[in-house]
Amino acid sequence: MRKLVLAVLAAVLVVARPALAQIYPSHPITIIVPFAAGGPSDAVARILGERMKRSLGEVLLVENVTGAAGSIGVGRAVRAKPDGYTVSFGHLGTHVANGAIYKLGYDLVADLEPVVLLPSNPMIIVSKKDVPAKSLKELLAWLKSRPQPPTAGTAGAGSGSHIAGLYFEKVSGIKLQYVPYRGTGPALNDLVAGQIDIIVDQTSNSINQVRAGTIRAYAVTDTKRVESAPDIPTVDEAGLAGLHMTLWSGLWVPKGTPEEIVARLNAAAVEAMSDPAVKKQLEDLGLQIPPKDQLTPEALGAWQKAEIAKWWPIIKAANVKVD
């Protein structure tokens, strides 16, 4: 009798799962952005969320959950009900680097389902406006001349800006004093105010302040120039060859979320990124949309695992400590 009951329940679940997916979503979806409002992650999530609601028929609400380089926000998403109504937005720092630095209480691969790889951007080396240097070589000379290590803003230990800073130190030989914030948005505010010296920042975060002339830009950490800012040289052109780093982002949902719901979220995100108006908004921020063959959940899962294999040994060798 017990076996019969279990078999009936299993059959009901098989039928119910597609039915749930068909009515999904029936109320607003929350995207957890693990950094402060106003930063680059927040901007991308809001741009995509606004367009995705047209495909999904429901509002996507951005919730900024800050702290511990994004690990607190990711943890909240991991522990959410796997029903498609909580989505984790993250990037190289939150969904790769943090696993090598923090005791997370969750597994970045085993406890999350990948949804889609999102636009990426190279980092950009920027300084406060009153730094006298006009080129990267002059900036390096100015930084080396400081009696104390120059201050560099980050979004916390293991964040993209911190990892980029570590690479900057390694390639340039210049020691930095890191100043952690709850996101690169607040860090950029302090750079504009002249409270810190530099940030190796996401291009999408700094580009508007660079255009406004409130901070100075020296180079992008890529092998080619950013189309939306062609006057900014690459690190190779500017004299710091080899400092190559691209900060990619993605969407995940809690483990156990039905495949049909993952597919709906993926399709909505892919449709959003193919919208000409959205593409222009993202490209104006210096972001690069992934090629079509990299827009499946499987592609994001494989990419995340490859990045863990690449970055974890480097981060652990740098002996990054949590403040």
Rank of each mutant, 00 (worst) to 15 (best):
V5C: 00
A7H: 06
V8P: 00
A10T: 12
V15N: 01
A16Y: 07
R17G: 02
L20F: 08
A21E: 14
Q22K: 09
Q22C: 00
P28S: 09
I29F: 13
F35A: 02
G38Q: 10
P40I: 05
D42V: 02
V44P: 07
L48I: 07
E50K: 15
E50M: 05
K53V: 08
R54M: 11
L60P: 04
E63D: 15
G67Y: 07
A69S: 14
R76A: 02
R79I: 01
A80E: 02
P82Q: 08
T86L: 10
G93N: 10
T94I: 07
V96E: 00
G99M: 07
I101S: 00
Y102H: 02
L104N: 09
L104W: 07
D107C: 05
V115N: 13
V116Y: 03
N121L: 03
S127F: 00
K128D: 12
K128E: 13
K129W: 02
D130S: 14
V131M: 14
A133T: 05
L136E: 09
L139R: 01
P147F: 00
Q148Y: 08
T151I: 05
G153S: 03
A157F: 02
G160Y: 05
G160R: 05
P180G: 09
T184M: 04
G185Y: 04
D190P: 03
A193Y: 00
D197W: 00
I199L: 02
A212E: 14
T214D: 09
I215P: 01
K224A: 13
R225N: 06
S228L: 10
A229W: 15
T234R: 03
L240R: 03
A241Q: 11
L251F: 15
W252H: 15
K255E: 13
T257H: 11
L265M: 06
N266I: 12
A269W: 08
E271K: 15
E271H: 13
K280P: 10
Q281P: 09
Q281R: 14
L285R: 11
K292L: 03
A299V: 05
G301S: 07
G301D: 10
W303K: 15
Q304G: 05
A309G: 13
W311K: 02
I315N: 04
D323W: 13
